[in-house]
Design a binder for these strands. Structure first.
Lengths: 236, 236
DNA sequence: GCAAACTCCTGGTCTATACCAAAACGCTGG
DNA sequence: CCAGCGTTTTGGTATAGACCAGGAGTTTGC
């Protein structure tokens, strides 16, 4: 119904994608090929592709081309189930790459946890994959007193599992913040996408059952790769 | 640092916007004016503007121009504080326009509440504003038995307040889903933005303390107008 | 004095083309 | 069979215009 050609194109592409998903094995033909097939220019074609990207139907891997996006991962940021667990539970393959391990201060984490500005933290930066697609990068800032030798033993497993199992912490109170964002050049590079790609930023400050600060973390997700789901019972 | 000109442009515009926010009274100069000032074409200029739009710094009102986005509204979808209350508490001016009142069935709501497909609902569609900017449209699907004469008395106030005050319902269990989206042509039109603009879709299914279904609602927010914030205590 | 009609400006859309750098591909030699 | 190297392909970026239709402001006519 819409008159703009790029919107008609969007519909035709949407149809083609759902039909030929398997045939193309997830990757769309080259932009020049698609532009010619639809008798238009790359500029207009890209406008249509950007629409579908906004919907989360397709995404592009920087300089590699357009790909059909897999189903969104269902994620509950209020639970402390490990990434590996809930990804596996949804029949997907999780993977984690540790990008950095260090100890230093971090103003934002300190403020979020109510600690002095120069408070040092154990910092873990990791990238996480679902079915070999990088879907998020995150930075974890752990109060060293709560997990002294963390950096020596950490190798990609569930942090919350470690905190509970090894140091006996009970993660009790948490404040969570979610904001849509454009991925920073650094985050985008680590996720192999174009700078400025749409993302979702999730920040959490975690305290134990005695209100002691445990950890602060900052996640940057590709916007099309998750569906946030929260189940609550009891009156608010 | 980035080499691409449109990224340099983005930085310059970001600077100008934060400096001249008051001078321009929230509205940016015409695209042709900006393009000429930066010695580039509208195409490239728009690429830079789109970056800032993705970050939530600016937005465009369909065919009206580019505007500086106000601060995000902090919103906790797990609480049932009324819109008017929490907008007011943040020093902002709330407003609600009722777009539609009707009774009919709705498959998605029925499924979400575990009711038969042909279950009728009281349907309220409303648009909500913060400081006179339309920031969301939503559809509410209320089980008629829980609020029989709802449509006769409803005129824009807090629905949850009504359910609690008039019919004595205790909203107890809720399942919430949040997904990034591109606004549908209808939603975009009702929010006065271009079709396909980035949005956030929030759906909730609400049950009372006896697990009886009360209500299902679907919100479509402009992506740059909110910051989701959840506070939780107690172990999960 | 006010509403309707008109004009101008502006954003929305589109064409056609070009160059660059990174990725992908294919060839070649060990 | 694989590593290294050169070629081709492809996405990313950019230019220079053009037309249209909706919005906004102004003028006109009752």
């Amino acid at each position: 119904m819409p008159d703009a050609y790029y919107l008609q194109l969007t519909e035709q592409l949407r149809y083609l994608i759902t039909q030929h998903a398997t045939q193309w094995e997830g990757k769309l033909p080259a932009e020049r090929v698609l532009a010619e097939r639809f008798s238009t220019t790359r500029v207009t074609l890209r406008q249509a592709l950007a629409q579908l990207e906004g919907e989360g139907l397709i995404h592009r891997s920087n300089r590699r081309g357009w790909f059909i996006s897999p189903a969104r991962l269902v994620y509950d940021p209020t639970r402390d189930a490990g990434f590996n667990d809930y990804v596996g539970a949804q029949g997907r393959q999780p993977r984690t790459a540790v990008l950095k391990l260090e100890t230093r201060s971090h103003l934002v984490a300190a403020r979020a946890l109510g600690l002095p500005d120069d408070q040092p933290f154990h910092h873990i930066r990791r990238r996480r994959y679902v079915d070999d697609r990088a879907v998020l990068v995150e930075s974890l800032w752990v109060v060293p007193e709560r997990a002294p030798e963390l950096l020596d033993i950490y190798s990609g497993q569930s942090l919350w599992g470690l905190l509970r199992g090894r140091w006996g912490h009970h993660l009790a109170n948490r404040s969570i913040r979610m904001v849509s964002e454009a991925l920073s050049p650094l985050d985008a590079e680590e996720l192999l996408v174009a700078p400025g790609a749409a993302g979702l930023n999730i920040c959490r400050a975690i305290f134990d059952d005695q209100q002691r600060p445990i950890e602060y973390d900052e996640e940057h997700w590709l916007h099309d790769s998750l569906c946030i789901s929260v189940e609550l019972s009891g009156q608010q």
